[in-house]
């Protein structure tokens, strides 16, 4: 498996204010993305996710460090020929129609007319935008712009797709559709890097993640390695057992309809609650073991920095 994207000790500082004050935004970012993987770049707002992406795209120049894409310099147009990019809050030429917009970007890649005429309708269909094909982009909603933006990111059939917050501004159905497209790209062997601060999206889609906080990568690796399978606690909702009896095994919360939700932290506690239910011929409404999530890890990391 070859390395598609590699960043080594990338640093970037900006000078801000009337009397310029240097603010170090990236403090030595090193990460590697292999071919065919879906890589999640996770971090709170202002952590440096978009700045990293902008460095990779050559929109801003790092003060130090190296960036290589497909084994070439990141500024080499040959490297960019295999890249697709969707920016956060996409802004596009609002005087163009969706078809003209995609055609413009396709021409920049030097894609021949016969390929363009096949690919543009296919991408519009894939992003459910075929009905808006001839509408100018200024009439598009944010969700529609996000979709057509995704279509432009795929116009060159890229090997590497970088998506900056691709699920922002979409309704639940739209999020699912875009998620499915990303999974489709993964199945087609494409490499996908996407940034998000929505942890569920990353958990659902990514195989590997890097967590950036305050301009530093705090953790990087396979999601399965980062997130422990260990059960943290079990939530059991029962009815017909007095709360006082359950309180001996864990923390109780009364719920409407005489139900009690008890949070039990160990295996014997779960056994004891089940025994109480059996003896009293009571009812169990739900039993949910909670394992560690990416959110737990993320919250811990943000808190400790």
């Amino acid at each position: 498996m070859s390395r598609v994207l590699e960043l080594e000790n990338v640093q970037k500082a900006f000078k801000l204010g009337f009397i310029p004050k240097t603010r170090q935004v990236l403090k030595g970012i090193s990460l590697a993305v292999d071919e065919g993987e879906v890589f999640g770049y996770l971090g709170p707002n202002g952590a440096g996710k978009t700045t990293t992406i902008k460095c990779v795209l050559g929109l801003i120049f790092p003060d130090a460090g190296t960036i290589r894409m497909f084994g070439r310099s990141y500024l080499d147009p040959k490297a960019k020929a295999g890249l697709g990019f969707l920016p956060e809050n996409p802004y596009f030429y609002d005087y163009l129609t969706a078809v003209e917009f995609l055609d413009f970007y396709a021409r920049l890649f030097g894609i021949p007319a016969e390929v363009r005429s096949e690919r543009i309708p296919r991408l519009l269909k894939m992003t459910s935008m075929e009905r808006a094909a001839d509408l100018p982009l200024r009439k598009f909603s944010r969700g529609m712009l996000q979709r057509v933006g995704l279509a432009q990111a795929l116009i060159n059939d890229p090997s590497l797709v970088i998506l900056d917050e691709p699920l922002g501004g979409l309704d639940p159905l739209g999020r699912k559709e875009i998620r499915d497209i990303i999974l489709g790209l993964r199945d087609a062997g494409k490499t996908v890097v996407f940034t998000s601060h929505i942890l569920q999206d990353i958990e659902m889609i990514c195989r590997r993640v890097a967590i950036i906080v305050g301009g530093r990568i705090l953790s990087q690796g396979r999601l399965a390695d980062l997130v422990s399978e260990k059960v943290l606690f079990t939530e059991i909702t029962v009815s017909g057992v007095p709360e006082a009896e359950l309180a001996a095994h864990g923390e109780c919360v009364s719920e409407p309809g005489g139900r009690v939700m008890v949070k039990v932290y160990d295996e014997p506690g779960v056994e004891a609650v089940l025994e109480s239910v059996r003896v009293r011929r009571a009812r169990i409404h739900s039993l949910v073991p909670r394992t560690q999530t990416l959110e737990d890890i993320f919250v811990d990391m943000v808190k400790t920095t």
Binding site: K54, L57, G58, L59, P77, K78, K80, A81, L83, F85, L86, P87, N89, P90, Y91, F92, Y93, Y105, L108, F109, G149, Q152, I162
Partner: peptide
């Protein structure tokens, strides 16, 4: 200003 340059410079152009 409209940030259309972000997507444009991400394409293989100098």
């Amino acid at each position: 200003e409209k940030r259309t340059i972000f997507t444009l410079l991400a394409k293989p152009i100098r």
